[in-house]
Design a binder for these strands. Structure first.
Lengths: 146, 146
DNA sequence: TATTGTTATACTCTATAACTATA
DNA sequence: TATAGTTATAGAGTATAACAATA
């Protein structure tokens, strides 16, 4: 089933190519993507959503604010916090990506009949659910194991 | 078909977790992986295989040599070149990862009957082949599009 | 006293350009 | 003259720790 790993790599490369043509790095694109999906949030919430440090968020937002995709606004009730949201340009970018991925998926899965697709999706869902629960198999991957 | 993108992400995270527990970064692990798959090669060949600059290879090899996973040897016929290969520890690491991924795949795809699996693999292969040919859809992903 | 976001500092990956040794 | 690998320099992402403002 190495094909699955290769497919995952190919999907990653495909996404990367898209970002390169837009002059956006992947971490910055993830910020835009997240804000587009979940809407305005504080930097703290963003750092939790992206699973990175608050310091990291500061740097990414500085760059994205500079290129006009994102705005920082004071939190109305907590003056320690900063609310982050997409500009109209950021919203267009986020929506365009979502559309692009949908198109890509449609292209990739065109020409399959519905029975095949249903079977594929069923297996995909079960594999995905299982992957979420699989713990890292540390022992078998140890490069220092005897 | 967003499930496929999510699965790709999950697989990536799963691999990343493995590397984290080993104290290896992804770029360094890719060097070890590549040398394990294709055997000894020059730094030039490595930079082409990894699609990065020769300078980048130098840095990765410096680190990997320091941790004893890789050795540099003079090329027997061309004194400009350097041959790079895995140490025995590097070979163990590479083999252990391959085994780990096989185990993961086996875990993920246990409990499916052979007809389901055959159907899944067939679609997977066709999607993969198509993905290799799909060009980036630049227009539809443009954040600056009107 | 705890939390939010920042500055200070450091390490890794990556790239381009200039340079050395060799072909 | 061209090639392989290095040093020099720079920018992005990430982390920890110390700090300011606010709760």
């Amino acid at each position: 089933m190495e094909g699955l790993f290769e497919l995952a790599d190919l999907l990653g490369e495909s996404m990367q190519r898209e970002l390169d043509t837009r002059g956006l790095t992947r971490p910055r694109a993830e910020v835009v993507w997240r804000l587009g999906s979940d809407g305005t949030m504080t930097q703290k919430q963003l750092s939790q959503a992206l699973r990175c440090t608050p310091r990291n968020v500061t740097g990414l937002l500085d760059a994205l604010e500079g290129s006009g995709l994102v705005v920082r606004r004071p939190h109305p009730h907590d003056r320690r916090s900063t609310l982050v949201g997409l500009t109209s340009r950021g919203k267009r970018a986020s929506a365009a990506w979502a559309e692009g991925y949908t198109k890509l998926a449609n292209t990739l899965f065109a020409d399959f009949n519905s029975a095949e697709l249903a079977s594929f999706v069923r297996i995909l869902d079960r594999v995905r659910a299982r992957l979420r629960r699989v713990p890292p198999v540390r022992q078998s991957l140890s490069p220092t194991a005897p």
